[in-house]
Design a protein around this nucleic acid. Structure first.
Lengths: 123, 123
DNA sequence: GCCGTATTCAACCTTATGGTTGAAAAAGGC
DNA sequence: GCCTTTTTCAACCATAAGGTTGAATACGGC
């Protein structure tokens, strides 16, 4: 499957169990069994989660006897951070400029209502 | 459906079309029709994508005649960035300390192999 | 060589997701 | 009042995702 890197990373982190796994791996490497311990699900399910994380490049596994310690690869976070920050900055820059325009606007010109909002969240 | 905020945000950004929409909205607000233009898919599909983004709090829609301009809500990015940076920093901190330990380790002590790696990425 | 432990593979089930088409709703233009 | 434009709703379809159980594989301990 040819999924682009960012998609796999975001998708991997969209699951709360996998985010929790990442959080725990940030503290220390751990084996599949150890990781599976606190969750309700089977070890197999956690193994699947780890494969998703591995395919996204977020973790790697080594071999140590029968155990296969899982290790967090924090560098991949950069890809995400860069993407996010890029558009966040771009958007913020745009609002700043909009504010400038509004501030410089002469009084007789009717500005478009400054983004009226209305989320429609409550359905 | 009671999906937690971070899950909806990451999940929303896991789709390349939706990321592209976000990228374009960072430049300027746009209507559903305008947004749908460059893609192969139907307007309805884009409308669905926008609902996903809206449920994640990433965009909001106002009303302006029949048009419903879509607006990027960049603040939500913070939630992600905070999550990411927290664990990235934690992980990096850990490696820094590990390096210290290894450096301070007396020669007669056999250290555990310093994370042998072996991504297994190539499947 | 056999046993136990750790992990993965395979087959299967259920639900979510992204897409489609076709109809309905909302609001202005005349 | 009707037509047009923009957007959403509804029903449907195919496939991916997350979970299960049960069997297979990989190693180290004796």
């Amino acid at each position: 499957m040819t999924t682009d890197p960012l998609s796999s990373i975001f998708s991997a982190l969209a699951d709360p169990t996998r985010r929790d796994i990442v959080a725990r791996l940030a503290v220390a490497d751990a084996t599949v069994n150890e990781l599976a311990q606190p969750y309700e699900v089977t070890v197999q399910a956690v193994s699947k989660h780890l494969r998703v994380l591995e395919n996204a490049g977020l973790v790697s596994r080594s071999r140590e006897a029968q155990r296969r310690p899982v290790h967090l690869e924090a560098e991949v976070f950069d890809l995400m951070t860069k993407w996010i920050e890029r558009y966040r900055r771009q958007a913020e820059e745009r609002y700043r400029r909009l504010d400038d325009v509004l501030r410089a606007m002469p009084d007789d010109v009717e500005p478009r209502p400054p983004r009226p909002r209305q989320t429609g969240a409550g359905r």
